[in-house]
Structures are given as structure tokens and as C-alpha cells.
Design a protein around this nucleic acid. Sequence first.
DNA 1: ATAGTATAGTGTACAATCAACACTATGTCA
DNA 2: TGACATAGTGTTGATTGTACACTATACTAT
Lengths: 229, 229
Amino acid sequence: MSVTYEYPRPALTVDCVVFGLDAEDLKVLLIQRGIEPFAGRWALPGGFVRVDESLEDAARRELREETGIGEVFLEQLYTIGTPGRDPRERVVTVAYYALVKLSDHTIRAATDARNAAWFAVDDAPPLAFDHDRILAMAHERLRGKVRYRPIGFELLPPKFTLRQLQHLYEAVLDRTLDKRNFRKKIIRMGILVDLDEIETDVAHRAARLYSFDKKKYDRMTRQGFNFEI
Amino acid sequence: MSVTYEYPRPALTVDCVVFGLDAEDLKVLLIQRGIEPFAGRWALPGGFVRVDESLEDAARRELREETGIGEVFLEQLYTIGTPGRDPRERVVTVAYYALVKLSDHTIRAATDARNAAWFAVDDAPPLAFDHDRILAMAHERLRGKVRYRPIGFELLPPKFTLRQLQHLYEAVLDRTLDKRNFRKKIIRMGILVDLDEIETDVAHRAARLYSFDKKKYDRMTRQGFNFEI
DNA sequence: ATAGTATAGTGTACAATCAACACTATGTCA
DNA sequence: TGACATAGTGTTGATTGTACACTATACTAT
């Protein structure tokens, strides 16, 4: 079922930068390409936009197909259409970035035997096409976003310690933060619910557990705030 | 010279939200459509992306062709591809927003006799397609941007009074600001050069003239800052 | 000329936030 | 049981945010 147009049209794709957080690093989800060009190279999950689906639907569909990830926080990042970025033909790609809880998603490779794996953002392999640049843009956007929108809910488990939350901010901002000032700031925001239990976290240390006050969290997400610390 | 593809492809366009500032309002530049659909309705300047030009080049070309505007500050806003947004066929549009000095550009209509005119952003007519929504997004983006990036340079003449700068912020943020606090804040930023001349501005009042310290202005544009006032 | 009007310009005081900094208590592991 | 790693906690000085009122000057209309 081929189609004929009066003028040539660029092909349209979506690509997703999927961020997750573990005990060490901010991670990004990559898939290994099975076909040329760049066969064997790691790349962002993505693919062609169908003519009857919205851009965001296309992004979610590709994520599901290639990595098994269902519900996620997904936001448009940037659209890149530099001629020559795909050696085959003119391809314009709408890049999205997603935030997921690592524990929520057991990543499975796509059915066509391509690998999917998590990489530390600062230690990712060279990527296919201009995906390095897209990844860098996404990281930069996340860094910017964190300054005026809370992001913890999307990346942390339902119960977490303040240390984990601080770790998230340190991973995203790529610098260390003062523990006391961080706690003061976060608590002043009033988005935390103190669960008042002491459990042991991953490293078997006792720590107070928190969750987010969903209402206040959403309000701050809409209104924005100033996170300079 | 028609082209055949294996699968149908969305058409790809660019649209530009062009902001300007005059003594009363924040303005937006619109063109009146000459052809169906929405013939006679006002719309954002824009058009199809050619297969060999970058997205930004396409935006600049359309601006030049339809309004005569050459060099401008131009930044990508968002890409919209909701199926059905164009009644003819699936069209994905990459929206840009531009900031121009009103005085720099005598707007001329395109050669195909379509009108071009400035409208107050808060008093724009109903637009063609989903351009109302794009305009609202652009205004929102500008409002957000102004909180952490300086925007005066792109919208004001080379010499301006603090009152004009304040007026710009008031127009973009859509609220009044305290004169003394505004002056303190801006001056503390250190991006102004006091020209130390008293001239008469538009309203024939004497006022001190300033210009931007280009170096510091650019640094703040890169680094960002906190503009809460 | 003069009275009325519109605008520019200026300072203070209180509150909130930022930023720097060190020690104790407790659980873990060898 | 000793060494080590982590959680938790407060104060102080500097900076910034915010609220608020009056004078001087230029222009306008009579």
C-alpha cells in the first residue's frame, strides 16, 4: 500500500530518553540496533510515527514495543530535523523524555532480539545517529526542570528516605548538596509525609521513611517553585 | 515531480509566534489567510518544510516570505501533531516563537496579498486551526522564560528607560510590579549600562536612559537567574 | 502664568531564604 | 569490641524578597 505525494516529505519518527534512578547513578535506557545503519550500536528507543496516531501515542507505543514499559511520565523534549542526521534520507524526529521507577519495570528486549539495557547517563556508550546530542539535551532539560518542578514522584519508590531524595537531586544536578540545607529546604516545601516508621533501606541502615503528599506535590508541579540549594 | 513512499507520511510544517512590544501591550504578528481552509481567518505565519532545509531555516524563510522579517531571535516551542488538527490531512507542525523589536521591522504583507498585522496578545481574534492553542503555549513559555532568562534585549530598542523595561515585564507577566523593587532587582543584576543622558521618550517625559551590558547580558542568558519580584 | 496632572526617582524595615559549618547516636561488620 | 558508615540535628551572617509614600520635574490646558 504505497502512497504518492506531490512534493517529497521528510520521514517522521519519535525517540525517547528514558531516565531511571538506582542506588549509584542516574540511568538511561538504551536499545541495541539490530539493523543498518549503525547495526550493533546503542540507540534511544523510538520509531516511525503512524499517520493516524498522535506523537505522544507513537512515543508510548514504541516504548512499549521496544522495552515493555507501559505507563510513564512522558514529556516532549525537542524536535530535530537537521538534514543529513540519518544517512538514508531526511528524517525529522520528535524527542521525548520519560521518567520511570527502575523497580517498576523489568525491561525486556523487543521481540526482534534487540537488547535493551540501562546505562549510567555519564557513562553511556557512543550512540547511533545524533542520539548522543538528544541524550545530552534531555539531561540538560531534566537539570533545568528540577530547579522549578519537583521530580521525585516519578523516579522514586512510594516510600523513600530523605537520603534517597537527596541522592536523586545530586544525580540529576551532578553535584553534592549539603545534607542539612537540603532537608530544611525540602521540609519547608511541605510536600513530604513523614511515615514515622523506621525501616532498613538497601544498605541496611535505619532511616525515617517519607512519601509525597500527592496533593501538594501536584500543586507544586503546576505552580513551580525555586529550588536553589 | 511527485514522490512515492511505502507508507503514508504526515505533512510537516512550521509555524511562528512572533512577539513584539509597543507602548501599550505585548503584541503578536498574525497573517490573514487567503485560501481555504479558514480563508479570511487570522493565523500564525508558517508553511511547509522543504525536504532539504532544516526546521529553523524553514521557520526563518516563512517569516521572511510572509512578513518581511529577517534576523530575529527564534526558539523552538513545541511540536503538535494531533490527528485532525488540519481538516485536509495529517499535518504535524513544529512551532517556533520569535522576539522582535517593533521598530526594526516594517511589516509587509506577503506577495500573495495576504494581510499581516500586529494584535495585542490578550485581544487577538480567533485563529485558524489550533493556532489559538499554540499562541497560548508561546505566551506561557515566554512567561516562564522571563523568570530565569533576560529577554529585554530582543524586544527593546538599544536605548531604553527602566520604565520601558518594567513595562515589558509587566506585559509579559500580565501583572503590575512595584517600581522600586523592580529597579533594585534589575540594577542588582548588573546587566545595565547607565547612559547618563536625559532624553525624552515617547511620552515626552525626561528619564535616564540605559542599554544592556552585552557581555553580562549574554552570561545571564546562558546561566539563568531567579527573577521573582 | 499658573494650576493641575503625569511621570521619574528614591530608602527603610521586616521577613524569608541562602550558605556555610561539626558533632552525636546508632547500627553494621570484621 | 573496635572501626566504620550513615542518620539526624541548629545557628549565624549575608542576601534577597516585599511592602510601602513622598518629592521633584516636565508637560498641558486654561
